[in-house]
């Protein structure tokens, strides 16, 4: 059983490699968030530095997969989480989140800068964006201007599965908000345009960049990444006449928060310039609160839809099962 001893040794070594420094005496504020927020390329590092400069605490982000995984994680942990704040749910999930009773109300009163009225006792918005189909301008000089135009064209699109991805769920709600009872017909018309449905945003966007589809479901701000970070002006988002469905990403304090005061302080910090100015070029979304500076150069080239669609959290939750069944039935034919 020498091999087992060696294995155990290696396991110990491996856990030592992850052990975090608990050397500081400062109180630790643990924030549960999705992976791409806390990654080296997301807003996490800059937000952490800015908050730690004022709070006298140690801010630790804990990554937990994507937005949907976050809520599952909170529910798994019940009231026993180390985390005081959860950051990264969207409004398609907040009704379900509120129903768990695991979240506490916040005291943030600063007026937000969302294009629609948004006031929730539990959830503080931290950024938002419009869903849109992104395409390459060189390959598609005249993009479709509505869902029916898209459905009538022979353009190929890649979308995400609403059963495993939050953008996928967003598209489902977009179609539902714009077409209501006519949604099943629209999905049936769209069926032959859909190259494939991917489990998450990453696969869909990757497929689009590899040239597998003419358009991909993403955000109106996705072209800003290519423009600003890659100096590639060749991507654009198609403006749809129906209006664009919004994704509002929110944060909330857990009722069981080990650090309730720090959690309140962090939620208030979200509404400040130090947090908001990081968002555009790291999360590639719009700030949810006014910033001192205007948006970075390049964002002015993004489309600004006239109509913003957003179902209330309760409506979105109530419609989900039916919308999913319609979607599955239309695309399974």
């Amino acid at each position: 059983m020498k091999s087992l001893t060696t294995a155990l040794g290696l396991v110990c070594l491996a856990s030592m490699a992850t052990a975090e420094s608990h050397a500081t005496d400062k109180p630790v504020l643990s924030v549960l968030t999705y992976d791409s927020f806390t990654s080296e390329w997301g807003p996490g590092p800059a937000v952490e530095a800015a908050f730690e400069a004022t709070c006298g605490c140690d801010l630790q982000f804990v990554g937990a997969g994507d937005g949907a995984a976050l809520l599952a994680r909170v529910q798994l942990e019940g009231g026993q989480s180390d985390a005081s704040v959860v950051l990264g749910l969207d409004t398609n999930l907040t009704a379900q989140a509120a129903a768990t009773g695991l979240f506490a109300s916040h005291g943030v009163t600063a007026p937000n800068a969302l294009p629609v009225a948004f006031d929730d006792p539990l959830f503080v918005p931290f950024d938002w964006g419009w869903f849109a189909f992104v395409y390459e301008t060189a390959k598609l000089p005249t993009p479709p201007r509505s869902f029916p135009e898209l459905a009538a064209s022979d353009l190929k699109i890649v979308i995400q599965d609403p059963r495993s991805s939050t953008p996928g769920l967003g598209l489902l709600m977009w179609v539902k908000a714009a077409y209501g009872d006519k949604a099943p017909e629209l999905w049936a018309d769209l069926a032959d345009n859909i190259v494939t449905v991917t489990p998450g945003w990453s696969e869909a966007y990757g497929l689009f960049l590899e040239g597998e589809a003419d358009m991909v479901l993403s955000y109106t701000t996705s072209p800003a990444y290519h423009l600003i970070a890659e100096e590639d002006a060749g991507k654009a988002a198609a403006a749809f006449d129906e209006g664009h469905y919004m994704q509002v990403e929110v944060a909330a304090k857990l009722a069981s928060a080990p650090q309730p005061e720090l959690a309140d302080q962090f939620l208030a910090f979200i509404a400040t310039d130090a947090f908001q100015s990081v968002i555009p070029t790291t999360n590639w979304m719009y700030p949810a609160y006014p910033t001192a500076e205007t948006l970075p150069e390049g964002f002015e080239q993004m489309i600004a839809p006239q109509t913003s669609l957003l179902l209330s959290a309760e409506e979105a939750f109530a419609l989900r099962t039916q919308a999913l069944d319609e979607w599955r039935a239309a695309l399974s034919r």
Binding site: D161, A191, I194, V195, T196, V197, T198, P199, R328, S332
Partner: peptide, 15 residues
């Protein structure tokens, strides 16, 4: 199999 089946299966038929 899950991601491969869904991505290459072309839609919810490949659930």
């Amino acid at each position: 199999s899950f991601a491969v089946a869904l991505t290459l299966g072309g839609g919810p038929r490949a659930t």
